[in-house]
Design a protein around this nucleic acid. Sequence first.
DNA 1: ATTATCTATAGATCTATAGATAATGC
DNA 2: ATTATCTATAGATCTATAGATAATGC
Lengths: 245, 245
Amino acid sequence: MSASVAVEGGRARPGRPRHIPVQKSSSVAPRDQILQASASLFTSKGFAATSTREIAEAVGIRQASLYYHFVGKDEILAALLGATVRPSQVKVAQIEAEVPPECPEAALFLLALIDVHTLANAPHNVGMLALLPDVVSAGKGEVYVEFQDERRKLASAYATFGTRLAKQHGVTTADEALGAMLIQQVEGIITLRADGVAVDEVRANEIAAGCLRLCGCRGDQISNAQQVAEDFVARHLRRGAPTTS
Amino acid sequence: MSASVAVEGGRARPGRPRHIPVQKSSSVAPRDQILQASASLFTSKGFAATSTREIAEAVGIRQASLYYHFVGKDEILAALLGATVRPSQVKVAQIEAEVPPECPEAALFLLALIDVHTLANAPHNVGMLALLPDVVSAGKGEVYVEFQDERRKLASAYATFGTRLAKQHGVTTADEALGAMLIQQVEGIITLRADGVAVDEVRANEIAAGCLRLCGCRGDQISNAQQVAEDFVARHLRRGAPTTS
DNA sequence: ATTATCTATAGATCTATAGATAATGC
DNA sequence: ATTATCTATAGATCTATAGATAATGC
């Protein structure tokens, strides 16, 4: 029975022990523990309304100890935002490469479905962070700019795919407006998670189908797009289904 | 040339003069000046991130003077929320009374259009307030409960109208999910305003049309619903069009 | 020696209260 | 006398820094 600490399961780490003994077999790095606690608090209470003391308490360390891992509260937020960028470039290129151009409905369905999955699987609904006014207003550094830039590109992709499809059906909504409506539909997933609604595969598909309906599609075309999308997903993204919280 | 103050235009009020002389012909009551400034700051920076000092500065009074009009910051928020309830009861009853039951598309279009107008015309995008986590989390008193309750009823009305219509078109989305998608679409107006996009009549109609498309409607039926809705609006709501900011 | 924490605290807020004061109104 | 402000300030945070300390690692 040695006098050392934090031996249960995981390898003991150097450094003075915490005032609250570290969780058994916690393989999570301290920095990540802070990020997880912060994500949970920021999304449930808001950024400005969350104090560094609360974060520290959730982790089980003293408030000052946060500053060994991060230079400040803003940097914690920046790290979370950085982990939340929805890499539209990659997605869109991949979709355009693999989906035949004669079925834009499949392209849009895919984009929406993948995006919904991204938002649904992100730990702790971090997709919400970029929508908070206190995050948006204070120029939260270049990470935030990068984030907004990526989102703008994504909206543009939705507008492109959507308009291509809408034209087929005589839907004349301006492409920018249509893009906004589509991304709004997809980001409904953020609201759902915030309300504690479980987001399963059915729901994800309903949302993607909704995007197609906004462009004037009907039953058969939607079923078809869904089929193509499912095949694509089966080929590429066999990592996890949407979750709650 | 009397020594009195605040005579320009409006009637001079009792009370010690402000350190910054009151605006010329400001007929706005001090309490409403505080509410307007708060709405602007809360929606642009967030509730928790806005200090009482900032509010006072925006009004042109000292921080402590706020407390003559409100018992605290929370009460300012409560007053704003109270002024923002979207009275679904009234709307829905009115629509059901006047729109023939054989065209549910007109009922849904109307509900969406009126709701969009409500959100678009509300001073300073206050519709956003109820979505902020710092507002939601701390149990901000019964005003907030009332607000949420009304929103729940509204979602239920969307679900009812939407499902009625969707069935006609073989759209099988569960009614709760459909209601959420519809209200999400309508509340896109909040995002638009936050992004500084002008919300005109065309945009409002596009959003309402989008709601119908989510239920499977196509061109002719949408045009019809729009016509009915426009007639209804012309009969009832001749007060102002949607605005920006 | 290095690492990760701790304790203690400075300095900057921020909210709210107490009491004074400068107008109008009777 | 009443009203609406002001000045001054208490008390409670909250963020961040300085320096001590208790582990591991060599």
